[in-house]
């Protein structure tokens, strides 16, 4: 959901910039010709409308650029590592990509999980792990989710020692193929 909203915001911001540029060019009668400029200056009745169009176009461009800049800045400065240790020699950290790999490997070893997707976020000084797993309809979901949480937690603690805020597990059950007679 968050990703969809982000993508839509980016598209709208880009569209705002493009529309603003087109409106601005239309307002000043691009390609600019001397006749066009003279008409614009001479046509005093059209001036307020033209000025309003130019102002509106500039506002669109400004809003679009600010939103795009904010999105790019957030993307570039997004936290992508979790601090492991701070000692006399310096800091050691592990990337969220590496944590995802550990979780994926843990789930791959399980026979009751057909496929999975993992995402790791930062929450304060801890990490939040979201797992989406697909299993067969014959598996008990409650037992599976608890088991997955415990196993993922144990794997992360054993290999990294990263502070885990929460492990959210979503399980989808795949349908069994129809019986053939």
């Amino acid at each position: 959901m968050k990703r969809t909203v982000g993508i839509l915001s980016g598209i709208l911001a880009f569209a705002a910039v493009v529309s603003g540029v087109i409106l601005l060019l239309a307002a000043i009668g691009w390609p600019i010709t001397t006749e066009g400029l003279q008409t614009m200056i001479a046509g005093s009745r059209r001036m307020p409308a033209v000025l309003f169009l130019i102002l509106f176009a500039l506002v669109c461009i400004a809003i679009g650029v600010i939103v795009l800049y904010g999105m790019i800045w957030n993307r570039l400065n997004r936290r992508t590592t979790a601090l492991l240790e701070k000692n006399a020699l310096g800091e050691t950290a592990v990337s969220f990509a590496a944590l995802s790999q550990i979780v994926d490997r843990t789930l791959k070893n399980r026979t009751d999980v057909k496929s999975s997707k993992t995402r790791v976020y930062a929450i304060g000084s801890s990490v939040r792990i979201e797992v989406r797993a697909v299993t067969s309809p014959t598996v008990s979901l409650l037992k599976l989710t608890h088991s997955l949480q415990d196993e993922i937690h144990a794997a992360i603690v054993a290999l990294c020692g990263v502070s885990i805020g929460s492990i959210d597990v979503t399980v989808d059950q795949a349908e069994l193929p129809p019986k053939r007679n």
Binding site: T92, A93, V94
Partner: peptide, 8 residues
């Protein structure tokens, strides 16, 4: 000496 583990 700062270390970041990028992948496994």
């Amino acid at each position: 000496v700062n270390i970041a583990v990028n992948s496994i």
